[in-house]
Design a protein around this nucleic acid. Structure first.
Lengths: 145, 145
DNA sequence: CGTTGATAGTTACAAATGCAACAAATATCG
DNA sequence: CGATATTTGTTGCATTTGTAACTATCAACG
């Protein structure tokens, strides 16, 4: 029987997080999708290469916590669209070093600027205290740091 | 060129939210998946019926912000597993009223209890102030109320 | 009534994902 | 060296999702 003192779905943290994540993802997705035809994983891979320089697929997997098949397919897509190139690592030919092309860097710069703008616009609706607490809580839940 | 005062991905709100949402979803997913073989959408639909009583698919779409095809398929799956039944509404035969079976209610009770437990265990790591702010911020971002 | 339009729900097809098997290169250790 | 195990990355297949088209019922209005 349904009790009355039950958890409201709107308070249930996984649900709240999912809805909030979906809402922001859909907003920002428009930017990379419309401008560059990218999917979310592709944008994440592009981001890592733009932010941290040349990486192997494996490194991106670890840093972004993405499965290797997802990364593999994202890299293929980005390569086809000329956003990155691969170069063999002579000392270990299992790895391929991934580097952004000029076009990739330019897309990264553009998207990052947009991301910052969007992030700031979301954050602007909160006080400084709220911002700090929100970030702290989310990082903890996401098991960062 | 990559600037230095750039946004850290770990601070980027959509990314943080996604990672946090994924982490909690994966945790809780185990419960409804292992115990009842449910998918996330099925759990959401079950939840709405358990929490709010009999509803039509359309009502669930609106309340849960789910697309009608997702709901349609979740209802089919829940019906096959005998968690709910449909009854035609005589005054408008386009709608079908969905009601949980005894088995559905029992799954709901069980899962809700587990959800509450999980929610509380997550929240327990935060102070009361942090909890309140976290919820407030997430609701706002999720465009709730 | 009867035509047109809206609504509830399903289905079909394409795209995206997850998982397991696979190939190729390297590491280990007798 | 040579057999076995590990690591990197890709591919194939089944599942899940999104979009659009479809069916069936009802509403509106002449």
């Amino acid at each position: 029987m349904t009790k009355n003192n039950t958890l409201q779905l709107q308070d249930f943290l996984p649900y709240l997080l999912n809805r909030a994540a979906e809402a922001t993802s859909l907003d920002f997705q428009k930017t990379y999708k419309d401008r560059y035809g990218m999917l979310r994983t592709e944008w994440r891979v592009l981001y890592h290469l733009g932010r941290y320089g040349d990486l192997t697929a494996k490194q991106i997997c670890t840093m972004a916590d993405l499965h290797k098949t997802k990364v593999s397919r994202a890299v293929l897509a980005l390569e086809r669209q000329r956003f990155l190139v691969r170069t063999e690592v002579p000392t270990d030919r299992r790895n391929e070093l991934l580097s952004l092309t000029k076009q990739g860097v330019s897309a990264f710069d553009d998207l990052q600027e947009e991301a910052t703008r969007y992030h700031n616009s979301l954050m602007a609706t909160f006080t400084a205290d709220e911002q700090a607490i929100l970030q702290k809580c989310l990082r903890q839940i996401a098991k960062f740091s």
